[in-house]
Design a protein around this nucleic acid. Structure first.
Length: 405
DNA sequence: TCTGGGGTCCTAGGACCC
DNA sequence: TCTGGGGTCCTAGGACCC
């Protein structure tokens, strides 16, 4: 049976949500109507554009470029900070509204959902449902969405990306050649800035060119990815809407440092704070990690990472930090100047599946209790306030709080 | 005061085993 | 005197997404 899929995409999500929140708080201006962006913090060296208004877009401002660049393009640009708590709130409101149409919803990101609407078999009904959702979101929540209507996820996603804002677009099989094939190949989902120039060299410039290209040649040149891009260009995608809550496959935490750091000891302190966050989240999921990965970025934007397996799956801050520290020490050599440091855990296992629990010694149990107590304190007083004493003095502690804010 | 932070998936190459 | 080859596991790095 043919699937009926909607892809709901919030227009300029972070900026729209900020606008709605500001209006709720008696703001006189709607930042969607002026050249405005949501940006990172330049003083913390994370000054990139996270979202832009239509007027900012008209100036040529692009998402993920530097605020510095954006300001050159648009001198009267207004810049607002990001606030993920607010984004989460509006994302949840949207989800609750969508649940009234189907419970088969995949939250693809904070501002995008796929809906499996296969119960509405008539195409007209499906499009009408999309229009109804669009109208209700605008009226009841105060922001607009684009909705793509199609028979698979890929085409629904491509459709929602057509003209914006506040639009419903269909992309059924018959429409592919007219609506999708004339687009530049860079518009195709999963084709990024490394692949597109290679396709250009092969005279593949539109999605249509790619659709008609030789599949075997693409496989030779790009491997599996080549097959996938050919299928996508032809509108082929058999993936299901993943509406069941899936646990993460990895958990990470990284930070661009306000200043480059040379001293290993300081890096270790930051690594501990990052590890605290990662293991805390890991424990909330009731998951255990089997591998630990530490990432460094130098002042010249050279990235390196090291990973290693743990002796047994764990969520213990101490055990994971010791592994992370060991990896950091393997990678670090003088005279390194570090811009970013990160830690992540992978190869996660369900805590309940763990047979090794039986063999845990008392020391581990003690450690587990300590983690639990700290988690509870964090929940009570906010996580930045509680941190392991370790070898941190007050100064360092304050600085860490600062960084993480 | 130019370049975030959270993810997923894939690939190539080395180690090791039979 | 010769250097096969399949399979698995592991790691580093890269590409892509929002």
């Amino acid at each position: 049976m043919e699937k009926q899929i909607l892809h709901v995409d919030v227009n300029n999500a972070f900026l729209s949500w900020t606008a709605v929140e500001m209006l709720k708080n008696e703001s006189k201006i709607d930042i969607r109507e002026i050249p405005a962006i949501i940006g990172g913090d330049e003083t913390k060296r994370s000054g990139i554009v996270l979202a832009k208004s239509m007027k900012a877009k008209e100036c040529g401002i692009k998402t993920a470029e530097t605020i510095y660049q954006a300001r050159i393009k648009c001198p009267n640009l207004k810049i607002f900070p990001s606030n993920f708590k607010i984004y989460r709130k509006y994302s949840d409101k949207l989800y609750q509204l969508l649940l009234q149409y189907t419970d088969k919803i995949e939250r693809f990101s904070i501002d995008e959902c796929f809906l499996d609407m296969t119960q509405y078999l008539m195409k007209d009904t499906l499009v009408n449902k999309a229009r109804e959702i669009s109208k209700r979101v605008k009226e009841e929540l105060g922001f607009t969405v684009n909705i793509g209507v199609a028979n698979n996820k890929l085409l629904a996603k491509m459709a929602s990306d057509f003209t914006k804002p506040n639009k419903v677009h269909t992309l059924f099989q018959k429409e592919i050649s007219i609506k999708m094939w004339p687009l530049p190949v860079s518009e195709l989902f999963m084709l990024g800035k490394k692949t597109v120039p290679k396709l250009y060299n092969m005279q593949i410039k539109t999605i249509g060119d790619l659709a008609k290209a030789n599949e075997k040649n693409l496989y030779k040149k790009f491997g599996k990815h080549g097959i996938q891009m050919w299928e996508y260009a032809n509108g082929i995608d058999n993936s299901e809407v993943q509406y069941k809550k899936e646990k993460p496959k990895g958990v990470g935490n990284s930070i661009t440092l306000p200043k480059n750091i040379k001293e290993l000891e300081k890096l270790e302190e930051i690594l501990l704070a990052l590890t605290e966050q990662v293991t805390y989240r890991l424990r909330k999921y009731d998951l255990l990690a089997n591998t630990v990965n530490v990432q460094l970025r130098t002042k010249d934007f050279e990235d390196t990472s090291h990973q290693g397996k743990l002796l047994s799956a764990t969520s213990s801050t101490k055990e994971i930090y010791e592994k992370a520290k060991q990896l950091l020490n393997q990678m670090y050599h003088k005279p390194m100047e570090i811009r970013l440091i990160g830690v992540r855990v992978d190869n996660l296992a369900e805590k309940n599946d763990l047979q090794l629990t039986l063999f845990k010694d008392t020391n581990n149990k003690k450690q587990e209790k300590l983690d639990k107590v700290i988690d509870e304190l964090k929940e009570k007083y906010g996580y930045t306030k509680i941190t392991r004493a370790g070898k941190m003095n007050t100064d360092n502690y304050l600085r860490l709080k600062d960084i993480k804010k």
